[in-house]
């Protein structure tokens, strides 16, 4: 792949650069980051976003506390009940948004809203609670959205090997499965690049046929 420098100079270096005129907004594109409760979606968005992630977080309520089991995520006291997002300015004419959406079934009503028009999706998995991400995997498969699955290595540890995870989640061979660290910018970047690679391959084969 050729790396074409952006035609507009100084897109990234200028801090707080105002667009030349308020008139022409960038083309917005988006990736969706899905996954179960406490799996690291917000962390991942925050690790790579160029702005502080905007998030609608509410302290977990008693009702939700019964549903969202906190016992496996000690230290986590709030959950994202809406969605959080960040962005990366690719150049002044193109802006990538990252939307983190709750992965559980009961938030499914939000997915259509966000996933429509997305370049692809990344499903984040906590190997201690694989079942939390089934719904998101199913959803992306049925909607035919290019996606990859990323196992978040909490504290650098992955408790199952990847073949087991693939088997347990019943994801097909052509879906990439990677290990990443949601706290590391480079690691999140690489996981998102895997998703975009799936999207590109698909777009290319669609263009040929």
């Amino acid at each position: 792949m050729v790396s074409v420098p952006s035609p507009t100079p100084g897109a990234h270096s200028a801090t707080a650069a105002e667009p030349p005129s308020a008139g022409q907004p960038p083309l917005p594109v988006k990736l969706v980051i899905a996954g179960g409760f406490g799996v690291g979606k917000t962390t991942a968005v925050g690790a790579i976003s160029e702005i502080r992630p905007l998030t609608t977080e509410a302290a977990i309520t008693e009702v939700a506390a019964g549903v969202d089991d906190l016992t496996h995520t000690p230290g986590k006291t709030t959950t994202t009940v809406a969605m959080d997002f960040g962005c990366i300015t690719i150049d002044p004419t193109l802006k990538l948004y990252l939307f983190g959406t709750p992965g559980q079934d009961r938030f499914g009503f939000m997915w259509d809203d966000v996933v429509e028009g997305a370049l692809g999706g990344l499903v984040i998995v906590d190997t201690r609670r694989l079942d939390d991400c089934y719904a998101a995997v199913d959803y992306f498969e049925h909607k035919d959205v290019p996606f990859a699955v990323a196992v978040n290595a909490f504290d650098g540890e992955v408790q199952h090997d990847l073949d087991e995870v693939r088997w347990a989640l019943d994801i097909s061979e052509h879906v990439p499965l990677v290990v990443f660290d949601a706290r590391e910018t480079g690691s999140v970047r690489d996981a998102l690049l895997v998703v975009l690679d799936v999207a590109l391959t698909r777009a290319q084969s669609a263009a040929v046929s």
Binding site: A16, C87, I88, L96, L119, G186, R189, L193, L196, L200
Partner: peptide, 23 residues
């Protein structure tokens, strides 16, 4: 568009400094 996003994302360094406060 996909290629531009990929190239733009590749240009993201391994670690970001402090986040910018405006986009």
């Amino acid at each position: 568009v996909l290629r531009r996003v990929i190239d733009g994302l590749r240009a993201v360094p391994d670690s970001r400094g402090t986040l910018r406060d405006s986009s």
